[in-house]
């Protein structure tokens, strides 16, 4: 393909090809300092290409293809090419990853122990992880948690944080401007702005961590916390996994061990400051 960018994020290498320069330029900019795929061999290929040849020039629209493709995925306008690239990488993971059990969750780490946060879109797991990542925790990822069935360890997958709508303002108040990508308006998920993980997240990218606490956050309610039993956590995590069924028995075993050994808490929070305080308290209890 005419333009390309190769990158390794945590243990996973990607090769992104594009018919246009712009998405690749944006990736180069935001993923500056990330390593190459291990041995130069990418685990997954993503292709950003026009659905029909003339759509490269005429009202250019970016179709997301690759090793794994969703047949009915809608193409995006070229202005959202960066989002297309990110979605393309997500798609390869969601449909093709078989080494790690994928949980749709954010992960942060402190003192070698990992905190896993999972919930529906809009529950705030992404914002919360990004915020904790600026306040003494190591950011390990906001999209997928990679659970190694062999070791029970979580591997970091520190992609760009995808901030949506109100979260964008909250984070721009806190973080230097040079870590942000362009503001993308009118995407299928509203306004999106990508945030580059900080230096600490990058330099420790290859260090896995043992999970110590699983949180199921919910935004917009009075502060509250309740224990989540192993069986409820199991069911909620299978629903949060894109490859649980495809991985079969190893996934069942890994998840069984996770919910048996790691406590779960459902938390409600009215605002992010309240959430940070609540997380710190539960963390101290869990590690006590």
């Amino acid at each position: 393909m005419r333009y390309r960018f190769d990158v390794r994020i945590g243990p996973v290498g990607f090769r992104v090809g594009s018919a246009w320069r712009q998405p690749i330029a944006a990736l180069r900019d935001l993923y500056a300092g990330y390593p190459e795929p291990d041995g130069g061999i990418a685990d997954f290929t993503v292709r950003l290409e026009p659905e029909r040849p003339w759509r490269r020039y005429l009202r250019p629209s970016v179709a997301i293809h690759g090793d794994f493709t969703l047949p009915d995925a809608a193409p995006l306008p070229l202005a959202q090419g960066l989002l297309a690239a990110e979605m393309g990488m997500n798609l390869q993971m969601a449909l093709g990853q078989r080494r790690y059990l994928l949980l749709h969750a954010s992960v942060v780490e402190r003192d070698g122990w990992a905190l896993l946060m999972t919930g529906h879109s809009g529950a705030g797991k992404s914002t919360l992880a990004a915020l904790l990542g600026e306040r003494g925790w190591r950011f390990m990822g906001d999209e997928f948690a990679l659970l190694d069935p062999g070791t029970g360890l979580l591997h970091a997958f520190p992609r760009l944080v995808s901030l949506k709508n109100a979260a964008i303002d909250a984070m721009t108040a806190e973080i230097a401007a040079d870590r942000f990508g362009p503001l993308l308006m009118g995407t299928p998920k509203g306004a999106i702005r990508h945030l580059r993980p900080n230096a600490a997240a990058l330099s420790a990218m290859d260090a896995p961590a043992r999970p110590a606490l699983i949180l199921f956050p919910r935004y917009g309610f009075a502060a509250a916390a309740r224990p989540v039993g192993a069986s409820e956590a199991f069911v909620r995590l299978t629903q949060a996994s894109t490859n649980y069924v495809a991985m079969g028995e190893p996934a069942f075993d890994a998840l069984s061990v996770l919910v048996r050994d790691v406590p779960g808490r459902a938390i409600d929070y009215p605002d992010t400051e309240g959430a940070v305080a609540l997380v710190e308290r539960l963390w101290t209890e869990a590690l006590a």
Binding site: R15, P37, G40, I41, A42, T45, D67, F68
Partner: peptide
């Protein structure tokens, strides 16, 4: 080479 392997896997998939 590395590119050869990546290409082989993409084609095989």
């Amino acid at each position: 080479d590395a590119e050869g392997w990546t290409s082989l896997f993409a084609a095989a998939r």
